[in-house]
Amino acid sequence: MTVVFTGLHHVQLAMPAGEEDAARGFYAGVLGMTEVAKPPVLAARGGAWFRAGGLELHLGVEDGFVPARKAHPGIAVDDLDALARRVATTGQDVTWDRDVPGFRRFYAHDPFGNRLEFLEPA
């Protein structure tokens, strides 16, 4: 039996407890994503979910939280320069990388130190 993968539904990143407002400020306020209501049984655990385009990003509370410094989602965007300017205005470092042929990309971190990659075709 062959399984056909049809897309990526969501990516989950960890976050510290009680920091939902910081998540909203960055993911909704800076990146422009829309917050998605979590099902009540999951909302009781804390965290927050966001959506933009075809991407859904879930932030889940993790005891003993440690940010993902190497692992990261690669998020495709259609105006990389505008997003880089917006992220930089928050005081976040924007680190450009030219190591993947055919793509322009940069790395940044969310308020919790999780690594994020943003890219668009060159």
Rank of each mutant, 00 (worst) to 15 (best):
Pro39Gly: 05
Gly29Cys: 01
Pro39Phe: 06
Lys38Thr: 09
Ala28Met: 08
Gly29Phe: 00
Val36Ile: 04
Gly54Thr: 14
Pro40Ile: 04
Ala52Trp: 08
Val61Pro: 14
Arg51Asn: 11
Lys38Ile: 03
Gly29Asp: 00
Gly25Asn: 01
Val61Tyr: 09
Gly53His: 01
Ala22Ile: 00
Asp21Gln: 15
Gly29Arg: 00
Arg24Glu: 10
Thr34Pro: 08
Ala43Glu: 11
Leu57Arg: 08
Glu35Cys: 09
Gly32Met: 11
Val41Pro: 06
Gly60Met: 13
Gly46Asp: 13
Gly32Asn: 00
Gly18Cys: 07
Ala37Glu: 04
Lys38Gly: 09
Leu57Gly: 01
Val36Phe: 01
Ala48Leu: 08
Lys38Trp: 03
Leu59Gln: 05
His58Thr: 05
Gly60Leu: 15
Gly47Pro: 07
Pro40Gly: 13
Pro40Ala: 10
Thr34Leu: 11
Arg45Glu: 01
Lys38Asp: 04
Arg45Phe: 00
Glu62Thr: 10
Lys38Phe: 06
Pro39Met: 08
Arg45Cys: 03
Gly32Glu: 03
Val36Ala: 03
Phe26Ile: 00
Glu35Trp: 00
Glu62Asn: 14
Val61Ser: 08
Phe26Trp: 03
Asp21Asn: 15
Pro39Glu: 02
Glu62Cys: 07
Gly53Ala: 06
Ala23Ser: 04
Trp49Ser: 02
Val30Asp: 01
Ala28Leu: 10
Leu42Ile: 06
Ala43His: 12
Phe50Thr: 04
Arg45Pro: 01
